[in-house]
């Protein structure tokens, strides 16, 4: 498949709610949410491992539900609440998941961490007392190559306990 460039890329003005802030921007209509977050809003906490919907690294929350930002088109997300890792802490106080991940060594290279934190947050908001298998199920779409997952599971359990 050949790449093509259309010189006159259609651009649209978007109004997005990102981490509780109303943002207005002019972007090419075909740009993914991942690209808009990273390139237009400089929210580089959202990472990517494939840009094809296969690794979960780019997970963000849309209205509280985990979604793959590499497969989402911002034009469809106007009026929806988008949460990225930058929106997890309140002020300089970390979210209990962030604290638990730091304390238990659940982030090694940290590249998968933003996506996993957000998937975990969505889970805990729905289910304050998830079993280990429920956590595994909820996070099955997020790959991590460093940790072997064990410390991530422990950190989510610790955070859940502290949040109750």
């Amino acid at each position: 498949m050949k790449n093509e460039i259309t010189r006159d890329v259609e651009r649209v003005v978007l109004a997005l709610d990102v981490n509780g802030e109303a943002r207005q921007l002019l972007v090419a209509v075909h740009k993914t949410l991942l690209e808009v977050l990273r390139e237009d809003l400089q929210l580089t906490g959202t990472k990517h491992g494939c840009e094809l919907g296969e690794c979960g690294t780019c997970t963000v929350l849309i209205d509280g539900r985990p979604e793959l930002s590499c497969l989402s088109l911002p034009i469809q997300l106007q009026g929806r609440a988008i949460t990225t890792v930058e929106g997890m802490a309140s002020g300089s106080e970390l979210h209990p998941l962030q604290t638990a991940f730091a304390e238990l060594g659940a982030a090694q290279c940290g590249y998968c961490t933003p996506g996993i934190l957000l998937s975990a947050r969505a889970l805990l908001e729905e289910n304050a007392r998830p079993s280990r298998d429920e956590i595994r199920e909820a996070l099955a779409g997020n790959l991590c190559r460093c940790t072997g997952y064990t410390k991530i599971l422990q950190a989510i359990e610790l955070a859940a306990e502290r949040m109750r």
Binding site: L43, T44, G45, T46, T84, V85, E86, M88, A89, L94, Q98, T99, F101, A102, E103, G105, A107, C109, G110, T113, P114, L117
Partner: peptide
């Protein structure tokens, strides 16, 4: 880890 905070906040 000394870089834990940087890693969990993005």
């Amino acid at each position: 880890k000394v870089d834990a905070a940087a890693k969990v906040t993005g």
